[in-house]
């Protein structure tokens, strides 16, 4: 069975969230593209899948997952990967993205994105599992840099150097989360500019923007607020290095009306077009 080519992804999209689905179907030009949380639809049926089909008829989509545990040591869940591949076929997703982290160990689930030590061994381990995933899915995937609240004594390199090595070894692309760069700068004293310098330009295929929860001495990557001003400033700098990179506004908790998300997307689109190569 042949499939039509996936829809092109350009400009600034928003993350698809259930309370907004009906409005997005009724107003099909609301955003140039949408990012679908794959875990919300894998193995699903009924109303959710019906609505997803309607969304995919109206918008180009990408798939974004949080549960593959690419950096984990428990064997990859091949049933999950097969279901993800079926979902990608069904939605004609332009690409699939995941995170450079681990989520579970054995049966124990964290439902969070847990940090890896930045060592050569871990980079090889992560890259191997990404290759296995790409072989199963039949396509190159994107991996996202995660926010973190700690680092390990055993780390041998910076996050940027670590991910550059993984991108090289796995031959995959990067989803650059600018909010996570800023959160890590504040929480861990890392240098976002050093991170950007370490990443090969041709590997950056998507950018994420989101809001954090400010606890004073620490920032929580809660996706529950508008994008913060320092993150907008960093995004502008990132766009100079990676112009025309499709960008996405993420908002998961304390979800506002769709118009609020679209206003954030409009602000990002203004910056996106200002720095466009065109």
């Amino acid at each position: 069975m042949s499939h039509p080519a996936p829809h092109p992804i350009h400009g600034v999209g928003i993350g698809l969230r259930t309370p907004h689905i009906t409005q997005l179907i009724q107003q099909p030009d609301s955003a140039p593209w949408l990012e679908v949380l794959s875990d919300n639809f894998i193995h699903q049926s009924g109303l959710d899948l019906h609505l997803l089909d309607m969304i995919c008829a109206a918008y180009p989509v990408t798939l974004h997952g949080v549960n593959l545990s690419l950096g984990g040591t428990t064997p990859l869940d091949t049933d999950y990967l097969q279901a993800l591949k079926q979902l990608a076929d069904r939605t004609q997703a332009a690409w699939i993205s995941e995170h450079a982290c681990f989520c579970h160990q054995g049966a124990a689930q964290s439902h969070d994105l847990l940090p890896l030590p930045y060592t050569a061994d871990t980079a090889a381990h992560l890259a191997g599992r990404i290759r296995q995933t790409q072989d199963c899915l039949g396509q190159r995937i994107l991996i996202e840099n995660v926010s973190a609240y700690l680092t390990y004594k055993s780390s041998e390199m910076s996050e940027g150097e670590f991910l550059a090595e993984v991108l090289h070894q796995a031959d995959c692309d990067l989803l650059l989360d600018v909010n996570n760069l800023y959160v890590n700068q504040r929480n861990l004293g890392t240098d976002p500019h050093a991170f950007i310098r370490a990443i090969p330009r041709e590997r950056v295929r998507e950018i994420h923007l989101a809001g954090f929860a400010d606890q004073g001495d620490i920032l929580i990557d809660a996706h529950n607020n508008p994008v913060a001003e320092p993150v907008w400033a960093l995004y502008q700098q990132v766009l100079h290095d990676f112009p025309d990179t499709p960008t996405l506004i993420e908002w998961d908790n304390d979800l506002p009306p769709l118009q609020t998300l679209l206003a954030q997307a409009t602000r990002a689109a203004d910056l996106y077009h200002q720095t466009s190569r065109q």
Binding site: G72, T73, F102, H104, Q105, G106, A108, S110, D112, L114, L116, P117, T119, D121, T122, H125, L150, T151, Y152, K153, S154, S155
Partner: peptide
Amino acid sequence: SLPLARLQHQFLQAIQGAETSLAEHIA
């Protein structure tokens, strides 16, 4: 340093409230 699988096991245990030695390996 902890082997990766051991580190991840301890991390999940810590999340579930168990006492572990993981803090010794955090910078």
